[in-house]
Design a protein around this nucleic acid. Structure first.
Lengths: 245, 245
DNA sequence: CCGGTGCCTTGACCCAGATCAAGAATTGCG
DNA sequence: CGCAATTCTTGATCTGGGTCAAGGCACCGG
C-alpha cells in the first residue's frame, strides 16, 4: 500500500506547509511554532480521541485521513467531519473534545500544545487569519454536506461522495478532476455509510448499481476509476458543474 | 404580533452589542465600524439575496430571523443555516453569495460595506478574533445539525428543533430552558421541513403526535408550551441533557 | 493447508416517511 | 360580508432504504 509518510519532521520539507494553519507564517513565526510542536502517528483504525476527553493540543493533519463523528447511545453514528492533509483538528479555547476522532487511514499529526498555541494566536494574526479562512471553508463544506444528508437519494449521496473525493484527490495532484482519473477509496463501506447517513448495505448496493451501469469502474473493492466525470457529476443531482466557489 | 424593532440606530443602544461580531470592540473601533455601517429592514418572507448574486456587504442580524438555503434545480430545498439576532451574514473575501437568504420573520440587518470591513479586519484583531469564535460556534451547530439530518427519526428531528429553539429563546431571556416555558415558532411548517430534511406533511403529523401525547401544548398553530422540558429532551434521542458545551 | 476474521455483496421482507389528495382554519381584501 | 389565498391538518397509498440473514472473498497466523 502506498502510504505516504513524512519522515523529515521539519517545516522546510513539510508537504502541507502552504495549506495548513501555518501557511501564512514568516520564518520567525515558524520558529515559534516549531518550539511547541511535536508529531504523532496512528495506524489505520486507531482511535485518537473520545468525545469528552480532555484535549490539550490542537493539530494539523500532515498525511492520512481522520474522521470526526458523533454517536447516539443506541449506537447510531454520524460522521460530521473528514480531515484530510492540511486540515485542522481541535479548537483553541476548548478543553474537552466534543467528537470521537478516529484515524481512518495511517495518519501523521503535527500537534501544538494548546495553551502556548492560544497564546501565540493573540499576537500572531497570520495564524488566526489563516484559521478563520480554514474554518469558513469547513463551514461551507459542512453546509454542502447538509444538503446531501437532508435531500439527496442514496444514489446521489454515493455519487456526491465519489465526486468530492475525486476533486480533492485531483487538487492534491494539482490538476482538476477529469475523465479516466482513478483513486483509492480512503473509507470502508461502513465509514461511507456513517458519512452519508445510510446503512452499509445500501452503500454496497448503490456502488454495485453505479458499477453495473458504467458510471464507475472498480478494481478490487477500493480502487475507483471515473471514465466520464460529467456523467458522475450528473448523478450527484447538483446543477451542471460547480455552483459553488 | 410582538415584533421587536430597533429604532435608535446607534451602537450604544444596540441589543446585540455584546454578542455580535463587534462584541470585543473598543470605543474607537466602534467608531470606525460606525462609519461603514447602515441598516436595512425586510418584511417576513422577503428574499434578501439569491445564490449567485454579487454581495458587497456583510451584516449582523439585529432583530428577526433569516435562513440560508440551498436549492436543487428540481425544487428540493435544504436549509443550511438559521440566523438569529447577533449572527453574522456573509463572508469576508467572498464576492458572490453561495446560498439563498430569506427573511423568515421581519428582520433588521446592520450592514457593513464589504471592502472597508475587510480592510478593517486586517488591523483590528478584536473583529477577526470574534468572527473566528462565532464561525467555530456555527461549525459546531452545523455538526449537531448533521447528526439530526443523517440519523434521527422524524419525531426526534421535531423534538430536537423544538429543544434548540427553546434553548435559544431562553438564552435571550437570560434564563435556561425549563418546565412551562413557551415561545412562538418563528418558522412555518414548510420552513421546519426544509430545516429538518422532511416534508411539511410529516412535520405536521409529528407535531400533532407530540401534542396528542402531551409532550408539548399548542396555543394556535405557532405558540408552543413545553410542560416538561426533560421529557422533550428525551424525545430528541440525545443522551441525557447536554453532552456538548 | 486450513480455519478465522474483516470486509463486502446480495437477497427477501418490511416500515417510516414520501406522495397524492381532500378539506379545515385563519387572514386579508374588494 | 363573502370569497380568495395562505397555511395547516388528516387520510390513503406507495416506495426507497432499513433490517435481517446468508454467504463470498482476501488476507493472516499457525
Amino acid at each position: 500500500m502506498s502510504d505516504k509518510t513524512f519522515d523529515h519532521k521539519e517545516c522546510g520539507s513539510c508537504p502541507i506547509r502552504h495549506r495548513a494553519v501555518c501557511a501564512r507564517c514568516e520564518a520567525d513565526e515558524l520558529e515559534e511554532l516549531d518550539s511547541i510542536k511535536y508529531y504523532r502517528s496512528y495506524e489505520a483504525g486507531q482511535p485518537i480521541i473520545w468525545s469528552g476527553d480532555r484535549m490539550d493540543f490542537v493539530a494539523s493533519v500532515v498525511t492520512g485521513v481522520a474522521s470526526l463523528s458523533q454517536a447516539m447511545e443506541d449506537g447510531r453514528t454520524q460522521m460530521v467531519g473528514l480531515l484530510l492533509p492540511s486540515d485542522f483538528l481541535g479548537r483553541p479555547g476548548r478543553e474537552f473534545a466534543p467528537y470521537d476522532v478516529v484515524a481512518v487511514s495511517n495518519l501523521t499529526l503535527c500537534c501544538f500544545r494548546r495553551k502556548p498555541f492560544e497564546q501565540m494566536m493573540l499576537h500572531t494574526p497570520h495564524v488566526s487569519q489563516r484559521l478563520l479562512e480554514m474554518t469558513l471553508d469547513e463551514l461551507d463544506a459542512a453546509r454542502e454536506w447538509m444538503l446531501i444528508l437532508g435531500r439527496k437519494t442514496a444514489r446521489e449521496k454515493i455519487a456526491s461522495l465519489l465526486a468530492i473525493i475525486a476533486r480533492r484527490e485531483a487538487s492534491l495532484e494539482l490538476t482538476t478532476a477529469g475523465d479516466g482519473m482513478s483513486f483509492e477509496l480512503p473509507l470502508t463501506r461502513e465509514a461511507m455509510a456513517d458519512y452519508l447517513g445510510l446503512t452499509l448495505e445500501t452503500v454496497s448496493r448503490q456502488i454495485s448499481a453505479l458499477k453495473r451501469e458504467g458510471v464507475i469502474t472498480l478494481e478490487g473493492k477500493r480502487k475507483v476509476i471515473i471514465p466520464d466525470y460529467d456523467r458522475l457529476q450528473i448523478e450527484t443531482g447538483d446543477d451542471t458543474d460547480g455552483g459553488l466557489i
